Amino acid sequence: MPRFALQVEYDGAPFAGWQAQADQPSVQGAIETALARLDPGFATRRIAAAGRTDAGVHATGQVAHADLDRDWDPFRLSEALNWHLKPAPVAILQAARVDDDFHARFSAVERRYLFRLVARRAPMTHGKGQVWQVLNPLDVGAMRAGAAHLVGHHDFTTFRSSICQAKSPVKSLDEIRIEAQPIPQGMEYRFHLRARSFLHNQVRSIVGTLERVGAGSWAPDRVRDALEARNRAACGPVCPPHGLYLTGVGYPRDPFGARGEGPTGR
């Protein structure tokens, strides 16, 4: 039974998240419905993804895998899936035949997220539903100073949802990089986070906390104090999901073709 990796892009706005749900639309459900139309034997199977994004969260580089009856040409598979996915805002960027031991979730060694935050007075038009908007400019230097306390191997209980199902709150956060880009009458701040895996709501909790630092409500060192508290009550506000994007997943070997050293997409 041939196994295929799928690189997936989607707008999370109309979905209740990645994971299939009986009574609500999901990204997983949309892809599985399209696969069942192409490969009738797939109707009783499921696909697995590298990350189960929450309701409203987007992706530009999600990875999933599916076991099919037919040994498709990967390009034809992606084209056919995109046809059957219409009009859902989900696109298969590429497909690849992979070994049977490849698993989109368990084979991953890195996940990358982007959070987009815009500061300006005027309402968003083109980016509506794609960014979190605040009204006043933020101090990017202060946010970078606060973020520096979070990089490394820590107990992230403070930045973990109370319903998180991970066995341990201890994670290694490899990178937080914050960029500031001028936009008409405002500024966009882009938070890039990289780690092997993340806790539930970890990225949104971190960005919401760093926004408080940028706004001047928190001193940068308060981020360190919040981390060391290991108490959810010490966290800043959790920012909304619509600014968050899963941008890439790293594997020891790129399932889509490149064969460089280290995780893919680096």
Rank of each mutant, 00 (worst) to 15 (best):
V27Y: 03
R52G: 01
T33I: 07
P123M: 13
C164G: 06
L193V: 08
R144S: 06
A145C: 04
P25R: 12
P255C: 12
F42V: 00
A195G: 03
R37D: 03
L150I: 00
D11G: 04
Q28G: 05
S161G: 14
S205D: 05
D99F: 02
K171S: 03
Q133D: 11
G236H: 10
D174V: 00
L138E: 01
A91S: 13
L93P: 02
R97N: 06
G216Q: 13
A13G: 02
A64Q: 07
H242L: 02
D39G: 07
H126D: 04
P237V: 02
L246F: 01
A145F: 04
T125S: 14
A166T: 00
V8K: 07
R232T: 12
D139Q: 09
T158W: 01
T264E: 06
E211I: 10
L85D: 04
G262M: 12
L6F: 06
I92W: 03
N201F: 00
L246G: 03
R224M: 12
D39P: 03
L199T: 00
I176A: 01
P263D: 08
R212G: 00
A66T: 12
G29I: 01
P237R: 11
F256A: 13
P263Y: 04
G141F: 05
H58T: 09
R190H: 11
L244V: 01
R116E: 07
G236V: 03
Q133R: 15
G208S: 05
V131F: 09
A30K: 12
G12C: 06
Y251N: 12
A48E: 15
V213L: 03
A48W: 15
S197W: 04
R253G: 00
P2Y: 07
S161E: 02
V109W: 11
S78W: 10
P263T: 03
G146H: 02
P263H: 07
D254C: 15
P240V: 14
T60P: 13
L114D: 05
F4I: 03
F156E: 05
G141C: 11
A91G: 13
V238A: 01
P169C: 08
S205K: 04
R232L: 07
G236L: 07
F256I: 07
H153W: 10
F106I: 00
T247W: 07
W72S: 08
R266A: 09
V90L: 12
G262F: 14
F75Y: 09
R222D: 08
